[in-house]
């Protein structure tokens, strides 16, 4: 394995890891605060992508500046977060917070099934191609390979901003500290008069946040790097890599990724 390949694999891994992080950090926050593994999280991701694509196409056909597609993506993210996430929390998840963890998992599984249909009915099953955001920024040449600036710089940068922004919000703003308090000790924070149901809503709409954002970042990078190394060394196993990493992490540090193991007080 030459040095070039290592470098290329690292760049690929960084870009892919940043994408994974952007999805995982939301999952991690939801788990941290709500103790729910949101199986439907992938649907949020997909719907966000579709909305962004639709907005992009709409901008293009309206003949507006293609640069508008960047704010359009942001709008897509907010729309999905507020509408899908908010509705879901307010109508459904709120009713199941007291239930067994297993049942909560199943409810989000049900939501996943429903959202998949919604997606299919709204956008069909044919792929959408929107490369405006990609082509606008051009490409850079690294070691003879053309990378789009978008993939190599923008996505990792956005991921970094999200990471730092969330850290800031959670540590230094009122709502952030409340979220942290609820994560750490739900009962105590409720006793102190925190309206935890509002916190839950906030969390779900932000669709992201704490749990352990650093953990999510590390895991995402591991998966990104693992997968891109696999692409170069054993391309047939790239799909396998994330699950393998997940398995290994769970095996050795089950509590590291999420929270501490619960012990019953006796």
């Amino acid at each position: 394995m030459s040095l070039d390949i290592i470098l290329l694999a690292m760049l690929d891994g960084l870009s892919y890891g940043a994408q994974v992080f952007l999805v995982a950090v939301g999952l991690s926050l939801i788990f941290g605060v709500l103790r729910i593994v949101n199986v439907a999280h992938g649907s949020f991701y997909a719907i966000g992508a579709y909305v962004a694509a639709s907005l992009g196409i709409w901008i293009a056909t309206a003949g507006w500046s293609p640069w508008l597609s960047y704010p359009a993506m942001l709008v897509a993210a907010i729309l999905v977060g507020v509408i899908v996430g908010g509705l879901l929390e307010a109508t459904l998840l709120r009713r199941i917070y007291g239930k067994e963890q297993v049942l909560q998992l199943l409810v989000t599984f049900a939501v996943f099934m429903i959202l998949e249909d919604v997606q299919k009915v709204t956008w069909g099953v044919k792929p959408y191609f929107v490369n405006t955001p990609l082509s606008l920024l051009g490409t850079v040449n690294v070691l003879g390979i053309n990378y789009s600036v978008y993939q190599l710089a923008v996505i990792p940068l956005v991921a970094l901003c999200v990471l730092l922004g969330l850290r800031f919000i959670l540590r230094y703003t009122r709502i952030g500290r409340i979220v942290t308090a609820v994560t750490e000790d739900r009962e105590a924070s409720m006793a102190m008069g925190v309206d935890s149901s509002r916190v839950y809503l906030f969390t779900f709409m932000a669709g992201a946040g704490l749990g352990q954002i650093e953990g999510a970042a590390v895991a995402a990078l591991m998966i990104g790097l693992g997968r891109s190394i696999a692409v170069y060394l054993a391309p047939e196993f790239d799909v396998l890599m994330p699950y393998l990493i997940m398995f290994v992490v769970l095996l050795f540090k089950p509590q590291g990724l999420f929270s501490t193991l619960q012990t019953r007080k006796v």
């Binding site: 459904l92 409810v107 429903i114 998949e116 919604v118």
Partner: peptide, 10 residues
């Protein structure tokens, strides 16, 4: 049909 399943599961 997935919607039907999802709704009935919930």
């Amino acid at each position: 049909w997935q919607t039907i399943l999802g709704v009935s599961l919930i």
